[in-house]
Amino acid sequence: MKKQKILLNIGAILGFIILLFILNKTFDPYQKKILNLCGIYVVLGLSMNLINGFTGLFSLGHAGFMAVGAYTAGLLTMPPAMKEMNFFMKPIVPFLAKVEWPFLPALLMAGVVTALVGFLIGSPVLKLKDDYLAIATLGFSEIIRVVFVNIQSVTNGALGLKGLPTHTNVWWSWGTAIVTILFMVFLIKSSYGRAFKAIREDEIAAEAMGISLFKHKVMSFIMGAFFAGVGGALLGNLLGTIDPNMFRFVLTFNILLIVVLGGIGSITGTTISAVVVTVAMEVLRVLDENINLGFVQIKGIPGMRMVIFSLLLMIVILFYQQGLMGTNEFSWDWFSKIKGFKKTPKKEVRQ
Score class of each variant (00 low, 15 high):
G265D: 01
I338H: 05
I315S: 13
I135N: 02
N169M: 03
F58A: 14
V146S: 13
V154R: 03
V307C: 00
G61N: 11
T176R: 04
Q31W: 15
A274M: 10
Q351I: 05
F58K: 10
A280F: 13
V218I: 14
S191I: 06
G224K: 11
S212P: 02
M48I: 15
F226A: 15
V260K: 03
Y192F: 12
A110T: 09
K346H: 09
M223D: 07
I10C: 08
D28L: 02
V279M: 10
V112C: 12
L75A: 12
A136D: 06
L313T: 00
G175H: 03
M314I: 11
I13R: 08
V218D: 12
K162A: 06
D333Y: 10
L20H: 14
N328C: 00
A158V: 00
E329A: 05
L23T: 11
F253V: 15
L251E: 03
V179A: 14
K83H: 11
M325G: 01
I143W: 08
Y320G: 04
V113A: 08
L23F: 14
N237K: 09
S310D: 04
E84F: 06
L20G: 09
G300Y: 02
Q152I: 14
T180V: 05
L120G: 12
L261N: 02
I298G: 11
Y132Q: 08
V117N: 00
K25D: 13
T166Q: 07
T137Q: 04
F249Q: 01
G15S: 07
I51Y: 12
N9F: 10
E282L: 10
T270L: 06
N237E: 14
G74H: 12
Y132N: 12
A136E: 09
A158W: 00
Q322Y: 05
Q4Y: 08
I298K: 13
I267N: 00
D28V: 01
M48R: 09
K129M: 06
I92A: 03
S220D: 07
R194N: 01
V112S: 06
P80H: 04
A195H: 00
L96M: 08
L324N: 00
G160S: 00
K90L: 12
I6R: 04
V230G: 05
G323K: 04
R200I: 03
G39H: 03
P165V: 06
L8E: 14
L96I: 07
L133R: 05
G300E: 02
V185S: 05
G157T: 01
P80E: 11
L108S: 02
L284R: 08
I258E: 00
F221R: 15
K3S: 09
I264Q: 13
K162W: 03
A106R: 13
L312H: 01
W332G: 08
I317K: 11
E100R: 14
F183V: 13
D131V: 15
L251D: 00
R285M: 09
K32Q: 13
L116V: 09
L287H: 04
L256F: 09
N254F: 12
N292T: 12
E100D: 02
I258L: 02
E201D: 11
Y30D: 05
E348Q: 05
L14I: 15
I143Y: 12
K189Y: 05
E348T: 12
R194L: 07
I51V: 15
